[in-house]
Design a binder for these strands. Sequence first.
DNA 1: AGTTGTTGTTATCCACTGATAACTAAGACC
DNA 2: GGTCTTAGTTATCAGTGGATAACAACAACT
Lengths: 183, 183
Amino acid sequence: MVRTRLTASERHAQLVQAAVTAFAQGGYAGTTTDQVARIAGVSQPYVIRLFGSKQELFLATTRHAGDRVQAIWRAAAEKDPTLPGLGAAYKELLAERDLLVVLLHGFAAAGDPVLGDAVRACYGELFFLVRELTGASAEEVRDFFAAGMLITVLGAMRVLGADTVPMQPWMTELLGTLPYSEE
Amino acid sequence: MVRTRLTASERHAQLVQAAVTAFAQGGYAGTTTDQVARIAGVSQPYVIRLFGSKQELFLATTRHAGDRVQAIWRAAAEKDPTLPGLGAAYKELLAERDLLVVLLHGFAAAGDPVLGDAVRACYGELFFLVRELTGASAEEVRDFFAAGMLITVLGAMRVLGADTVPMQPWMTELLGTLPYSEE
DNA sequence: AGTTGTTGTTATCCACTGATAACTAAGACC
DNA sequence: GGTCTTAGTTATCAGTGGATAACAACAACT
């Protein structure tokens, strides 16, 4: 191993990246800090030392996912600041499907008070960002988010994104009419 | 304790009910079989004996949730076999919010192959049921499910349903225009 | 070179959890 | 009333997972 050492912030970022991958598969409770550590190639106790606790690691991970979605939408709005414009960015989001799935796990885990607060704040930010970028009405934004949630769930179910499951009739019917998701 | 004994099928049903409550809070990995047992007032090993494994218990729970949604939609369709008709039933579904949240946990956990198969099958059934009951087009059904996913996620985030969190501006804006969810 | 701070590891712990086994007790049936 | 089946328990285990502590090694600076 000629692996050179990283600075704390580099390692931090790398671990968040690994955590996105790991948590997307197993969710918060279903993922071990050791799995995250292995992906990043460090020891499990070091992960805890850098983040303080598993919960902090998960919070950092969902925050990162939210920020990444924001960044992608901001970039999309520079070309076309409309809802279909942002919707087109779902192609890129599905390319990083783990981002969406991690967020979904966060939403599902909102029963936990502290995770819930974080996740609701994240969602609120996204809502206002879309309103601000597009100037669309509340109704239109609501439909946009509804479609987004459907895409996210279909991503989590391996119906959309990479390495999808064999197609079933209902999937083709649904996907045939799905906006924002053409490849 | 004058607690009389139940038949196996009664206990089975009661445990599934308890499991809906428990799994809705913590998800699959984040819930212990002992928590389910305590809610039902039995010992933890008995839960395992009746269902074989924790995974089987979770599968039974998601199946039950899916069946319940089907039943509610069928009942709604008898009065008004249209999409808005079924949408009105979301009021009842939100009254049993744990049902929706358990399903969401199932969707999120679809990374697991065996849970994934079950959950996709459940979703496919729901899709065809709605098409059959309403005769709506694929596009309309897609929008219906998109709105349903949004409602489900908002339920999981404690923005809709019972014991909701204090309202935030973005929530009121979103909810103000949300169909199928007026109380 | 020596000293100091930062990056990382190994060893270890303790609580927890799903599962098994062996046992107990309530009904049903004759 | 005895016996057989079904409902349920207690005791226990083996594995795991997050967290702590103590230690090691690389780098930087004078």
